[in-house]
Design a protein around this nucleic acid. Structure first.
Lengths: 333, 333
DNA sequence: CTGAAAGCGCTTACAG
DNA sequence: CTGAAAGCGCTTACAG
């Protein structure tokens, strides 16, 4: 069942059939109606490989969503799609596994589909450094800054992760905490958690309570168990900590459990702050103070950057404000 | 940059180049080496549309992961891939958005890639009923039964959701609970939550404490807010409930919050049971009793069904055991 | 082991 | 408005 079958069944040529498939205007109403009818009857679906093989023309803009299951990303997608739609652009989204190489995926996609532009929700800087030069279309990285990458066709929009982290520490300091532990990420890992850690370190240093990385910091993968183990180790080692800053909400969730398991209470004995404002921090008992990123704002800026990139503009790196969500997990000493 | 460029640059014909691309044996070592070298130098990547257009031959088995962010599915994927690899089959996975039509996606995929078989991690029965007849390859639905669908090429592997639900109710009953509320899903929705609701109803009825659907059941979307609102309404209406069974862990998470917000404690005042054994129920305070599905078992059976289907076997519907994870959220009255 | 040729199912100038 | 023809980049008999 191919376009030729439809052509002969309808009595028109393949050219005309192709035109109705693609919704082109120069087809008589009569032909269109007739052909549409035949296609429906036959349950015909154009072969996409053949289409894309021919249509070297660029199609829609492609979005790659990293780390499946991130609610923030889901919340960005809607407004982004809407904003793009307003400019007449389609958005087709591809979900990627947590440890997938998003840049490789994007390059493959580019080969197959020739998108006009690409947007990455999340992303590992390492992959961008390695292979992004192979992508030829304007792109934007969302939630993490690409300013340091210096790629001519890669814009970015993110909060200032380092500043957000400083803000958390200052919040804690202002409430009388001096012995503050930090958990999450690693000292030589993913750029985003690096920035958060660095922000905490600097804020602490500025206030004369330098973070002892050996004693008061514990790396942890961004999983509940990671947070649980890290908090346990930290608490065994530094029993005098009055507050823990978890560099991600999942980590905070595990940490909360670990604290309670030691017979301590949050915030009675230990104050806790997370990062990301996931549903965990909104519904846990107690609700956890955390840093929130504004999905709609990120989406709006991302859309602008995409459009500007497609119009030939240079890469830009925009920073949007974050917000500290004060909840129930921090006690004033 | 196409296969012809590689051919002329290497001095061989396109046929030979194609053969080395596809790792076929009938190529001299010399030619293979030379061509590989040229391809590397040029950074050549075959055009996948052209490949698939020609290769009408079937490729790998395709997996569709529904409702992005479901840890159970992620845990199934690894073992499934491994088991299939042992049989020499590749698994390529596609992540789908929560409200995507997975069957439509599968049909499109089938058109483009001609997979040998497909497996669905999760899925909406409605979509299967509507369009699955268009898929032509052996498939298996995982975590939900396709027995009632009667599709000749659709096998399934799942726990007995109804029985699991009965088990929860019996557990509660055995601990002296008589006034048990149920939240989550809807009375005319997704098959899986229907089954869970029905299991609860029947178990209750059998023990002479019929579930009053108007009074002691609250539908809720599978989100924390859904659980929060449903539990709030239920508790306002039926203040004498001693236990709540949430048809999903996310719903339980929201419910836990709602209970605490009313100044009640779990399990002191209200016992709580979830379903799915997500990280929430493992790390919440208190840890929540829930039903666990065995990822490795599901994966192993799914792999068998895929292989059997590819060998021409008929569709089968297998049921694997579930497990009640007793934790800290249920009190004996 | 290798090359020349046909053809996968489409789209798009080109001519009418 | 419509059709015949070329060609997108590959793979695969077929012949050598």
């Amino acid at each position: 069942m191919d376009i030729r079958d439809i052509a002969s069944a309808s009595g028109y040529g393949v050219g005309t059939v192709s035109r109705v498939i693609n919704g082109q205007p120069n087809v008589s109403d009569r032909a269109r109606k007739c052909i549409l009818e035949v296609m429906r009857e036959c349950g015909y679906e154009p072969n996409s490989n053949a289409r894309y093989l021919k249509m070297r023309a660029q199609t829609s803009v492609a979005a790659f969503v990293m780390g499946v299951g991130n609610r923030l990303f889901d919340d960005i997608l809607g407004p982004l799609q809407a904003a793009l739609a307003e400019a007449g652009e389609d958005l087709v989204v591809t979900y990627l596994d947590d440890d997938a190489d998003e840049v490789r995926a994007a390059i493959d996609y580019q080969h197959a589909r020739r998108p006009k532009a690409m947007v990455f929700l999340g992303g590992e800087p390492r992959y961008f450094r390695e292979a992004f030069h192979e992508v030829e279309v304007p792109s934007v990285l969302v939630t993490s800054s690409a300013a340091d990458l210096g790629l001519p066709n890669l814009s970015s929009v993110s909060i200032d992760n380092e500043a957000a982290s400083r803000h958390v520490i200052e919040h804690l300091l202002a409430r009388g905490h001096r012995r503050i532990g930090v958990i999450g990420g690693s000292r030589a890992g993913n750029l985003t958690s690096d920035l958060r850690l660095r922000g905490a370190e600097r804020a602490l240093a500025e206030h004369g309570v330098a973070l002892d990385l050996e004693r008061d910091y514990e790396p942890a993968p961004f999983l509940e168990t990671g947070g649980y183990d890290a908090a346990s180790r930290l608490l065994s080692r530094s029993g005098d900590l009055t507050a823990i800053f978890a560099l991600g909400d999942v980590v905070a969730f595990g940490a909360l459990r670990a604290i309670v398991d030691r017979g301590l209470s949050v915030p009675g004995d230990v104050s806790l702050v997370g990062f990301d404002d996931t549903s965990f921090s909104q519904f846990s008992v107690p609700r956890v103070t955390t840093i929130s990123q504004h999905a709609e704002l990120l989406a709006a800026r991302a859309a602008e950057l995409v459009l500007r990139g497609m119009a030939g503009g240079e890469a830009e790196h925009v920073v949007v404000p974050f917000e500290l969500m004060e909840r129930e997990s921090v006690r004033a000493l």
